[in-house]
Amino acid sequence: MTPDHGIPHEPGAPTLEAHDVWAAYSDGLASDGPRHALEGVSFRVERGERVAVVGPNGAGKSTLFRLIAGTLRPDRGRLEVFGQGPAGHICIAYVPQRTQVDWRFPVTVEDVVMMGRVGQIGLLRRPGRGDWAATRAALARVGAAALAHKQIGALSGGQQQRVFLARALAQEAELVLLDEPLNGLDAPSQEAILALLDDLRRDDVTVLLATHDLDLAAERFDRIMLLNRRIVAFGPPAAVLHPDSLLRAYGAIRN
């Protein structure tokens, strides 16, 4: 790893390790509800694994992703990416929910993918030949090369998600966090995204994906993390999708 790629990775360290992590709601409010979005969460994710994070609304999925991305700090506990605190890494990509993006913003698909390079390019410098090459390669890999000069608002939902995945590729991300990327997509578009995530396995890229879709999580992911402020269950789909654990994850919220 060159200095341009953020802090070095500790050899042999797991991609992601959380130990007794507690976190408050990021807005600091929720006075009538639970005070913590996450309570004593511990887990480990190895390199190249594909994990589906499943849980009801308010289960702390977004909070967990922000902690992993290093944009939020735990109140208590320790969370490490490649053996270090996440806040120094630039190899962590966060693909936002589509509702969080301003699609009217005056940028083209190519502009958005190039944004993934900004960490490597460095302050006050312009994109070089290598950055353009990485941008084009990333677009080609997600099958969006023909869309390069389109304004982002002109894309379909599936195309929008693929462009943000291309941005993660241009960033040379080794850990990709996708916040409910399949919401509102039709089946073929979902399949296209999932196929791209399968393809990332080639490069040992680790993927965490938040979703509500249990069947899909069971079919396409190595492990499922069932989250409801605590980790209710974490393991291979067959072990996790047990009526007991589902009741504990979803039943608690309904009451």
Partner: peptide, 14 residues
């Protein structure tokens, strides 16, 4: 540009 379009990306790119 990054900060205006996607503040969270700006933060993860440090």
């Amino acid at each position: 540009l990054v900060l205006s379009f996607d503040p969270l990306l700006a933060a993860t790119l440090r």
